[in-house]
């Protein structure tokens, strides 16, 4: 609900006043005692924005830092409407993992292979 309200409010006002709206929004969340759920709100907002634009939220996780060139190469594999995020996750040990909309994943990490081998 917060995500829906935030997107609705930001849509109606010009770009210059959007920062102010965002501050007010954070104030409302804090006042309502929902600050602990802020991460969830942001994830939902990101998802809704991507869907509104006709795309998906794509999360690229690498086990260690990779060059900008590699990142842009991967990003190009997705539509320009998709919201692509890059994260470094050492728990993967080696390799990478792609998650789409938090519901589908392609896991090519060594961590998964090791887990699969020993369970």
């Amino acid at each position: 609900m917060y995500a829906e309200a935030l997107i609705g409010a930001v849509d109606k006002i010009p770009g210059s006043a959007q920062n102010m709206t965002l501050k007010r929004f954070l104030g409302v969340v804090r006042k309502n005692g929902d600050w602990s759920g802020l991460r969830k709100i942001l994830v939902a907002t990101r998802m809704m924005l991507a869907r509104k634009a006709g795309g998906r939220v794509v999360n690229l996780e690498f086990a260690r830092g990779v060059s900008d060139g590699t990142i842009s190469k991967f990003s190009k594999a997705f539509s320009h409407k998709d919201h692509v995020e890059v994260e470094i996750n050492p728990r993967l040990v080696a390799g990478m993992r792609i998650t789409i909309d938090g519901e589908k994943e392609l896991d090519n990490s060594l961590q998964r292979k090791l887990t699969k081998l020993f369970t």
Partner: peptide, 11 residues
Amino acid sequence: FKDEPGFEKIG
């Protein structure tokens, strides 16, 4: 060990 990675559904 055989590994055939593909898209999997997760939550």
